[in-house]
């Protein structure tokens, strides 16, 4: 059930490093996934516009570093928005 073992670091060391990294990043006040979800569309547009979203909304950036699911969704959102720039022929579906 653990992620694939293709990483060069042995899994047990990786777990300890992950735990220590998470603890090192732990702050007294953090945004929850729900609070980040409220802001992430605005955050993505700032980033897409070339504005440094991390400086403007550091608490969102911090959560995205800590939470793999929110980070995954943020990357997916950015990717979906990038498709705005594709030519119409590149965004046609099969069938």
């Amino acid at each position: 059930m653990t992620p694939s073992a293709s990483h060069p670091i042995p899994e047990s060391i990786a777990v300890l490093v992950r735990l220590l990294r998470t603890l090192a990043m732990t702050e007294e006040r953090e945004l929850s996934c729900e609070e980040v979800f409220e802001l992430v569309d605005y955050y993505a547009e700032l980033q897409g516009a070339g504005v440094n979203a991390q400086d403007l909304l550091p608490a969102v950036a911090h959560h995205l570093r800590l939470c793999p699911e929110c980070a995954d969704e943020y990357r997916a959102l950015l990717r979906c928005l990038e498709l705005e720039t594709l030519a119409p022929g590149q965004t046609s579906l099969p069938g």
């Binding site: 569309d41 993505a44 969704e73 997916a76 959102l77 979906c80 928005l81």
Partner: peptide, 15 residues
């Protein structure tokens, strides 16, 4: 209205 409507909708769809 903090973002474009389609960005907001995409956020929900991705989630």
């Amino acid at each position: 209205g903090h973002s474009k409507f389609t960005t907001w909708a995409a956020k929900i769809a991705v989630h």
